[in-house]
């Protein structure tokens, strides 16, 4: 039996229909047409479905949609502002932090959370933070480079007088 779920997705308050057994990732993709969040595995390992739930990175394949009732979700679609990529997205582009791009939304979402908690992570801290995201193309080197570049861009944008990026 479907339930009505009231939640906030990418800054927008909305209602969605889902059965209790519906996984958050399926509600986002199939009900809300937010197909940037990917399903990459069936074992909670790949991280392609990572979204922010109240600002924290979670695997939306391991959360029931009904558990998101009353909470705030941010997906990859919620990062760009007025056609301008979020600094993390921009950095993945510039540093070739992707090849096929399938895992990228998950990496970007985890990175957004990481850089909020730790604006200047070391390489070890970056690799540890991204342990729950799997990429089969890049070998991770360029992803780490992208995260470092994004960190630097975000630190720059936090200087007094500079525009503060959203997301």
């Amino acid at each position: 039996m479907t339930q009505t779920i009231t939640l906030n997705v990418n800054g927008q308050a909305l209602k969605a229909q889902a059965e209790p057994r519906t996984l958050l990732v399926h509600m986002l993709r199939d009900e809300l047409n937010l197909t940037g969040t990917q399903v990459g595995c069936d074992t909670s390992q790949c991280g392609a479905c990572t979204v922010l739930l109240d600002g924290r990175a979670v695997k939306s394949c391991s959360v029931l949609a009904v558990q998101a009732e009353g909470h705030k979700i941010t997906t990859i679609e919620g990062l760009a502002r007025d056609g301008t990529l979020h600094p993390v997205q921009q950095a993945f582009w510039e540093k070739h932090g992707l090849q096929c791009g399938f895992c990228t939304p998950g990496f970007v979402m985890t990175t957004v959370e990481l850089l909020r908690d730790n604006p200047d992570p070391t390489e070890d801290e970056i690799r540890h933070a991204l342990e729950g995201n799997v990429c089969r193309c890049t070998g991770y080197q360029n992803i780490v480079a992208a995260v470092r570049s994004a960190a630097s861009a975000l630190r720059g944008s936090r200087r007094p007088g500079a525009a503060v990026s959203g997301g």
Partner: peptide, 12 residues
């Protein structure tokens, strides 16, 4: 705890 699951799993 730092070694349990991964960041997303630890968040939840």
């Amino acid at each position: 705890t730092a070694g349990i699951g991964d960041r997303q799993v630890r968040n939840r």
